[in-house]
Amino acid sequence: MMEDETFTDISGKPITLDCHSHSSFCREFNISSPKVSIGKVMVYTCSVWLVAYAVFFFTQNTAFLSSAIIITLVGMMFYIHFVKVDHESLLVIDSLGIQVSSTYASGREITTFIEMSKIKDIVINEAVYMHQIIYYLCVLLKDSSEPSVVSSVVPLFESSKPRLNCLVKVYKSCQEILSKCQ
């Protein structure tokens, strides 16, 4: 089963949820954000460089022009390697665990695996974010000494921040798999 719908994040920007059912006990969810806009990058870069050139023109200070160029280039590299997440994925495998991955615009990927024995539940939680209440999907982890107690909360899809309608779709599918484990 493969579904392809368009949803929005909490800011109203479009995101895409792809659901893949590999089998009755394995499902994968991918949330993709729009790619980095080359047009926006060009506008910001040209604006900074034009201002730097204007300052250079009047002051004849080459250090200012050089540092503006270097700071802009380093800033863009930092943004695409550490900040801009292109897509996040959640792989749920019955009786094995959950794998959470984030892929950055540079291609760098961070993956975390949580064993099913450590998972108490997957829930939709709410939080106050700026001036609004938002919903987020999270994994509740069991306390190793007392399994009925939640030791920590692992939020999912932190970068894409999907709205509730998208989270409900993922939540229901995850609960189908988790119910088979118990």
Score class of each variant (00 low, 15 high):
residue 46 C to I: 15
residue 47 S to V: 11
residue 48 V to Y: 09
residue 50 L to M: 06
residue 50 L to W: 04
residue 51 V to D: 08
residue 52 A to D: 03
residue 52 A to W: 01
residue 52 A to E: 04
residue 53 Y to P: 05
residue 55 V to W: 06
residue 56 F to V: 00
residue 57 F to S: 02
residue 57 F to K: 01
residue 58 F to W: 03
residue 58 F to E: 02
residue 59 T to E: 07
residue 59 T to S: 15
residue 62 T to M: 06
residue 64 F to T: 11
residue 64 F to A: 15
residue 64 F to P: 09
residue 66 S to N: 06
residue 70 I to C: 15
residue 70 I to Q: 11
residue 71 I to P: 03
residue 72 T to Q: 11
residue 72 T to H: 06
residue 72 T to E: 13
residue 73 L to A: 04
residue 73 L to D: 01
residue 73 L to N: 05
residue 74 V to Y: 13
residue 75 G to S: 14
residue 75 G to W: 07
residue 75 G to N: 08
residue 76 M to F: 14
residue 77 M to I: 15
residue 77 M to R: 11
residue 77 M to E: 13
residue 78 F to G: 13
residue 79 Y to W: 09
residue 80 I to M: 10
residue 81 H to E: 10
residue 82 F to E: 00
residue 82 F to G: 01
residue 82 F to Y: 05
residue 82 F to H: 05
residue 83 V to K: 14
residue 87 H to D: 08
residue 87 H to V: 07
residue 87 H to R: 12
residue 89 S to I: 09
residue 89 S to V: 13
residue 91 L to I: 05
residue 91 L to Y: 04
residue 94 D to A: 10
residue 96 L to Y: 12
residue 96 L to S: 13
residue 97 G to Y: 12
residue 98 I to L: 12
residue 100 V to P: 01
residue 104 Y to K: 14
residue 106 S to I: 14
residue 107 G to N: 03
residue 108 R to W: 11
residue 110 I to R: 08
residue 111 T to I: 11
residue 112 T to L: 06
residue 114 I to A: 00
residue 115 E to M: 03
residue 116 M to G: 13
residue 116 M to Y: 10
residue 117 S to R: 12
residue 117 S to D: 10
residue 118 K to S: 14
residue 119 I to P: 04
residue 120 K to Y: 15
residue 120 K to M: 15
residue 120 K to L: 14
residue 121 D to N: 13
residue 121 D to V: 11
residue 122 I to T: 10
residue 122 I to D: 11
residue 123 V to W: 09
residue 124 I to E: 06
residue 124 I to P: 12
residue 125 N to T: 00
residue 125 N to F: 00
residue 127 A to C: 01
residue 130 M to I: 05
residue 130 M to W: 03
residue 131 H to P: 00
residue 132 Q to A: 02
residue 133 I to H: 01
residue 133 I to Y: 03
residue 134 I to C: 00
residue 134 I to T: 00
residue 134 I to N: 00
residue 135 Y to L: 04
residue 136 Y to Q: 02
residue 137 L to C: 01
residue 138 C to H: 00
residue 138 C to A: 02
residue 141 L to Q: 08
residue 141 L to H: 02
residue 147 P to E: 09
residue 149 V to M: 10
residue 151 S to L: 05
residue 151 S to V: 08
residue 152 S to P: 09
residue 152 S to G: 12
residue 153 V to Q: 08
residue 155 P to M: 12
residue 157 F to A: 01
residue 157 F to Q: 00
residue 158 E to N: 09
residue 159 S to Y: 13
residue 160 S to W: 07
residue 160 S to H: 08
residue 160 S to G: 07
residue 161 K to W: 02
residue 163 R to G: 04
residue 163 R to D: 06
residue 163 R to V: 09
residue 164 L to G: 01
residue 166 C to N: 01
residue 167 L to T: 04
residue 167 L to P: 02
residue 169 K to V: 06
residue 169 K to M: 00
residue 169 K to A: 01
residue 171 Y to D: 08
residue 172 K to N: 10
residue 172 K to C: 05
